[in-house]
Simulated scan of single mutants.
Amino acid sequence: MAIRNSLIREGVRRILSDSGFDLTESVDDLHKLAPPQEAGPADHVIVVDRSLLGSDGAAVVGEILHRFPSARVVALVSSFEFTEMAAIYAAGAYAYFLDQVPYQSLVAMMQMVAVGQKVAPPEIIDLLDNLLLLTETPPLHRGAQGYDLSEREWDVLGALERGLPNKTISRDIGISESAVKATVKSLLKKLSVSNRTQAAVLARELADHQGPARVLCGVGFHDVRALDPRS
């Protein structure tokens, strides 16, 4: 187990130990993980928290699996990001879930990983529900509506389409996190959607509706006006 925060690390360690897991290592840095001393019939499970995955979690998961080919990697994160989750699973991880998960759920998911099952986070169900809600309105009808968005709002919308968290959007656009939150709130109201996921899906539909005019640059759209349904 590699978790930087000592309180979370100790909490997870105690939960897993009390639940019958054989915890061989508990460290605050991935480089401190030592290769297993014995090759037993059961593969090792490596729990890694988000802060140790860096800016490219999928690449770090790949590096872990290069060092420990038979390991089953579990990513423990503080917030759910669909794009990141998909990339981490594609890199070979077995599970991706929030560090606020109830301990019974944590134990159940770890038990499934231990027997070779990949586990999807509960947030996936919410995502599917949101996608179903979006299908209730015909895409072309939504794409034909006019959206009075500022250039900053178009940039933030482009970032939401890519699944970026507020901290990354703040850094890439050059505005404060509070300004990002305010812009997201304004976007949701103008687009008549309930959350970031719905806004991201709608952004993709608008881009597809506009055809080749969609060109990404940084975290935003290269020509935001080209995406405006009124133009």
Rank of each mutant, 00 (worst) to 15 (best):
N5P: 07
N5S: 10
L7R: 13
I8L: 15
R9P: 08
V12T: 09
R14K: 14
L16R: 03
D18S: 15
G20R: 08
F21Y: 09
T24V: 09
E25Q: 15
S26F: 02
D28A: 14
L30C: 06
K32G: 00
K32F: 11
Q37L: 15
Q37K: 12
E38T: 11
P41E: 12
D43S: 14
D43C: 05
D43G: 14
H44R: 06
V45H: 07
V47L: 15
V47A: 07
V48I: 13
D49N: 14
R50A: 10
L52H: 02
G57D: 05
G57L: 02
V61E: 01
V61C: 10
G62V: 06
E63W: 07
E63K: 12
F68H: 13
F68R: 03
A71H: 01
R72D: 00
V73L: 07
V74I: 12
A75P: 08
S79T: 08
E84P: 07
M85E: 06
A86V: 14
A86F: 11
A87L: 04
I88L: 08
Y94I: 04
A95L: 03
Y96N: 04
L98H: 09
D99I: 00
V101Y: 07
Y103M: 10
Q104C: 03
V107G: 06
A108V: 06
M109P: 02
M110H: 06
M110E: 07
V113I: 04
V115G: 03
Q117K: 14
K118I: 00
K118Y: 04
V119K: 09
P121A: 11
P122Y: 09
P122K: 08
E123K: 12
E123W: 03
I124S: 02
I125Y: 13
L127Y: 12
L128R: 01
L128H: 05
D129G: 03
L133F: 09
L133M: 10
L133C: 02
L134P: 04
L134D: 10
L134V: 04
E136L: 11
T137R: 14
P138V: 09
P139K: 05
L140G: 00
L140W: 14
H141W: 02
R142S: 13
R142P: 08
G143F: 09
G143D: 10
